[in-house]
Design a binder for these strands. Sequence first.
DNA 1: TAAGAATATTCCTTGACAGGAATATAGCGA
DNA 2: TCGCTATATTCCTGTCAAGGAATATTCTTA
Lengths: 123, 123
Amino acid sequence: MLETLAALAEPNRLRIVELLRAGPQPVGEIGERLRLRQPQVSKHLQTLKKAGLVQMEPVAQQRVYELRPAPFRALHAWLERYRELWDARFDELEGVIEELKLRDQIKERSNQPKEKKNARRNK
Amino acid sequence: MLETLAALAEPNRLRIVELLRAGPQPVGEIGERLRLRQPQVSKHLQTLKKAGLVQMEPVAQQRVYELRPAPFRALHAWLERYRELWDARFDELEGVIEELKLRDQIKERSNQPKEKKNARRNK
DNA sequence: TAAGAATATTCCTTGACAGGAATATAGCGA
DNA sequence: TCGCTATATTCCTGTCAAGGAATATTCTTA
């Protein structure tokens, strides 16, 4: 997670990622489109690769880079844990979840101390 | 977006954010729980504040910090644009979207050059 | 108003990292 | 094999940001 964030938290690297969203591209084309010198593009791509954000496939003497799904999925999963914080619709969901929890408690057996009704965050 | 990512891409700052997920906390408590010295906590909190990730409310001589939803929402929105990349279920969705697009084209008027059927990404 | 608690700020040092320039490496075609 | 193209790597330099220590600021209470 940290590595992913660090990799994305650099302007030109973020631009590269954004560009790769349109599909796999060779180093040269990336540099051309983003007006970056070739060595910097290569270096950023190495960083992105180490972070697992891209993968490379050689095609003749070109190196075609493309995005890898995994880190994005992970980032999304991480954000998901904050959904309560920002998703208004969460309140509706909360009811459903609460209900499911109750159902589980019944199914398993009710030996744990009953959970408090989970008042809406502090304050 | 960049500012948000940069703010999160620092280990201790990320820990602070993770901690604040449990609810608003004063500086001292954060430092205590994360074993960080007070000045560093304050400094990180300033950074997070500048990035809009947290907000502060003074309570006596304490400063209580809490997460702000906006950047998380923005991050989620940004990630959403990559969903095609990582969400397997996207393929189902695509059909629906395609249909909606067609419907809109009909409703408005069909003077734009017909879009190509948007073949599933390159390769 | 003075003292103490909680937090913010400043100054310093150090390490990491990005860009620039030059050079090395890999793969292709003749 | 040679030369060319595409890319990677190295070395250098400057900048920036994080931690440490000391100090300033803010607010409360007696």
